[in-house]
Simulated assay, not measured.
Amino acid sequence: MKRLTALATAAIIAFSANQARAVDPDKPLTLPATVTIVDFDQMKATALALHPGSTLLDTDLDEEYGKYIYQVELEDTRGVEWEIELDALTGQVLKNHQET
């Protein structure tokens, strides 16, 4: 029974590890030929338009549950930091919230 529990735990950890991962910017991004992501400059412009006058702090392209998500961190003119998530395939804003 302990062996079965250990195997089940290992399977859950392995499955969870594959569900969300950062895309390594030093390695080419491999997407199916039918998938095209939105240009980064367009995503950056969309994020900055949500908070005019903001400064770009950080950006990441992550894969979560088979979806590609741009994560953009901004600091607005009042010094408030914002985290914005955009769908890399459509450009749709998925999340726009203040960092705590």
Rank of each mutant, 00 (worst) to 15 (best):
I84F: 11
N96A: 12
W82V: 00
V72L: 15
E83C: 03
E75L: 13
R78C: 04
L86K: 05
G91D: 03
Q92P: 07
L94N: 04
L86H: 01
E75Y: 08
Y70I: 09
I69P: 05
Q98T: 06
Q92D: 13
E75I: 14
W82A: 01
G79D: 06
E85M: 05
L89T: 10
V80T: 14
E99W: 00
T100M: 09
V72Y: 09
I69W: 04
E85D: 09
R78G: 11
L94C: 08
T77P: 10
E81N: 14
N96I: 03
T90R: 12
E83S: 11
L86T: 02
G79T: 02
L94K: 08
Q71P: 03
E81V: 00
D76T: 11
N96S: 14
D87W: 04
L89N: 12
Q92V: 10
E73C: 06
Q98V: 10
D76N: 15
W82S: 00
L94H: 04
H97R: 15
G91P: 05
Q71V: 11
E85I: 00
K95G: 00
T77G: 09
E81F: 05
E85Y: 04
G79F: 00
R78E: 15
D76S: 12
E75G: 10
Q92C: 03
E99R: 12
I69E: 04
V72K: 11
V93G: 02
V93A: 03
G91C: 06
D76V: 07
G79K: 07
Q98D: 03
A88V: 07
V93T: 02
Q98F: 06
G79Y: 02
D76K: 11
H97M: 11
T90G: 06
E81T: 08
K95I: 00
L86C: 09
Q92H: 12
V80N: 08
G79C: 03
R78F: 09
E73D: 15
L74W: 05
T100I: 10
N96T: 04
K95A: 01
E99C: 04
L89S: 12
L89I: 01
I84K: 03
G79N: 08
E73Y: 13
T77M: 12
E73T: 09
T77I: 14
L89R: 14
V72S: 07
G79L: 01
E81M: 04
E81S: 13
V80H: 08
L74V: 08
L94D: 02
E73V: 10
N96D: 15
K95S: 02
D76A: 09
W82M: 03
I69K: 09
Q92S: 13
E85R: 10
R78W: 06
T100G: 12
I84A: 04
L86I: 15
I84L: 12
V72C: 11
H97D: 14
D76G: 11
L89K: 15
I69R: 08
G91T: 01
K95C: 00
L89H: 10
I69Q: 05
T90L: 08
V80C: 03
L86F: 05
A88P: 09
V93K: 00
